[in-house]
Simulated assay, not measured.
Amino acid sequence: MGTTLQSDSGSVTRILLVEDNDINRQLMTDYLKYCGYEVFSVAKGESFAAAMTQFHPHLVLLDLKLPDIDGYTLLQQIQQTPDWSKIPVIVVSAFAFQADQQRALNLGACRYLVKPVKLPELIRAISEELSYLAV
């Protein structure tokens, strides 16, 4: 599983993780790195724009409940920024209600995974979304 995953440009696939829970953030970061992804993680929504601009992720993993800005607002920012709007966003949230899921999908998220997420399911969702980009 330690193989390096290549993007279209030949560089390692970059994932931006937006997660305020320290344990969840560290666990997902470690697992994604183990799976061969390059990961940059932020704990607050206020760091999101700078991370998007400097890191240029191929995919975003987004928690909806953040301490400063909610994930819905970040989804709107992504859709309103032409350079970001083509980047797939997978929401990983404890909000399990259908209304929350539908709202996130309506705002441009491509998938919605409910916490606690099974790590193999997360990797499968990431791989599938990145394969859509390659087509």
Rank of each mutant, 00 (worst) to 15 (best):
L5W: 11
K118I: 10
K65R: 13
F95Q: 09
L107R: 05
P88Y: 00
L66G: 10
Y112L: 11
T81H: 15
Q54I: 09
G10N: 01
Q101H: 13
L17C: 10
D68F: 13
R111F: 12
L62K: 08
F55N: 08
L61R: 01
N24L: 14
A96F: 08
G2I: 06
C35R: 15
F97S: 15
D83L: 13
L107P: 14
A50W: 07
H56G: 02
Y34V: 03
K86N: 06
A96K: 04
T73C: 15
V89T: 04
V60A: 06
T3D: 07
L62P: 07
L119T: 01
L32G: 00
L74W: 09
Y72C: 13
D100N: 12
D70A: 02
V91M: 10
L27W: 01
T13I: 15
F40P: 09
R14F: 07
V114C: 11
L17Y: 12
L74C: 11
T13H: 00
S7G: 14
F48D: 05
P88I: 03
K118V: 05
V42F: 04
V89F: 06
T3S: 15
V89M: 10
T53H: 12
T53L: 14
F97T: 07
D70P: 07
R25T: 06
G10C: 05
L113G: 13
Q79C: 05
F48K: 05
Q102N: 14
P57D: 02
L64D: 01
I90Q: 05
D8V: 06
V92Y: 09
N24S: 12
L119H: 09
P67F: 14
E19Q: 12
P67G: 02
I15N: 04
S7V: 02
D8F: 01
Y37M: 08
D30V: 01
K115M: 14
L27Q: 10
Q54M: 12
F95A: 07
E46Y: 13
D68A: 14
L5P: 01
N24H: 12
V92N: 12
Q77W: 15
L32K: 02
Y37G: 07
L62N: 06
R103P: 14
K118W: 06
M28R: 11
G71Y: 04
G2C: 11
H56S: 04
P116Q: 08
T13R: 08
D70M: 08
Y37R: 03
I15A: 06
M1Y: 12
I15Y: 08
V60S: 06
L105R: 06
K118Q: 12
I23E: 11
E38N: 15
R25W: 09
T3E: 01
S7Q: 05
A109C: 08
I15E: 03
T29P: 00
S47W: 07
L105C: 06
K118T: 04
T13G: 03
L17T: 00
T73M: 15
H56K: 14
P57V: 08
A51P: 03
A49D: 03
P88G: 11
L59Y: 03
S41L: 02
G2F: 13
S93L: 13
I78N: 01
S93I: 09
P82V: 02
I23A: 10
G10P: 05
T4D: 04
Q102V: 03
L66F: 13
H58A: 04
K44A: 10
